[in-house]
Design a protein around this nucleic acid. Structure first.
Lengths: 160, 160
DNA sequence: ACCTGAACACCGTTCAAGT
DNA sequence: ACCTGAACACCGTTCAAGT
């Protein structure tokens, strides 16, 4: 078959979106690619690294412009666009904070302190939003209609 | 032996502090209590609930006073006091946001928008701090001496 | 280089059965 | 009420061996 590392990341993202982070195991990703689980270790040293690569891909297309608030909305949408996307990004960024393209662009535009405060907030709030929506979808909870506005207000508090 | 639910939570926190979240399995917690893993399910419906109870206990003693910044420092210290404490609190609060005593006291004191923005930031930044320190302890990284000051500056940005 | 097959040391959870 | 023992359906990772 001759898969590449990009194939593995793409397959992992398909499994993530289809089944959620809970079921995104090395064995399932391997099955998605019609390969044995052990074959993945030829492309990726371990699961943690695979998750970091997935997080990079999720955040990849987000462009950071002069309009910081709009940029943060785009970051939020990119994470919400894939099942458990915010969770994956939160886990990965917690481990190696300070190396994403989005963070660098943001630091250049508004300085490190606001940039980091903002990123922690945006990822954290989006994670809450996504898990809340999931619980509402499952019928475990009634959907809070204020989530989007609440995100906006928090953004305003940080950006003054 | 006749253990109680509190015994189970206490045992789980000992395992957490001793071995980290990664190794805090139902089977290890059971072993800590000299009991079979299946016995835990008499006290707790599942692992997620146990983690939520652990998070409650970690945050339990934090008093929220009029001095909001000092309160947030206490919350941070409570999470840093136990291995992977911020991780446990982050996971648990993400699932059922809006029911902790700390959050309620904070909302009463500064309103819901600032309170929630602040909590997301404090938990998120502390999680990063704790994971960073862990990586530094393991020799994988050099310790960033600016973490505490960085926390303070982010707090200032949100609290104006 | 890329993959298989088998193995190792684990998981969370359920459930009949014991006391 | 509280627990055991056994089972079910999984995990991540390693490693010799194949092509």
């Amino acid at each position: 078959m001759a898969h590449t590392r990009d194939d593995v990341v793409a397959g992992a993202l398909r499994v993530l979106d289809g089944f959620g982070l809970e079921f995104c195991s090395m064995r399932r990703v391997a099955a998605e690619l019609d390969v044995q689980a052990s074959a993945l270790y030829h492309h990726v040293p371990n699961k943690q690294t695979l998750l970091a690569l997935m997080a990079d891909r999720i955040v990849d297309g987000v462009e950071v412009t002069q309009d910081v608030a709009a940029s943060m909305h785009r970051l939020r949408e990119a994470m919400l666009a894939i099942r458990d996307g915010a969770d994956v990004v939160a886990t990965a960024t917690a481990f190696r904070l300070g190396t994403s393209a989005v963070e660098e662009a943001l630091i250049a535009s508004i300085g490190p302190d606001v940039a980091r405060t903002l990123l922690i907030y945006v990822v954290g709030h989006t994670q809450t939003t996504q898990l809340h929506r999931q619980a509402a979808d499952a019928g475990a909870i009634t959907l809070d209609p204020d989530l989007d506005a609440s995100f906006e207000r928090g953004l305003g508090i940080i950006l003054r």
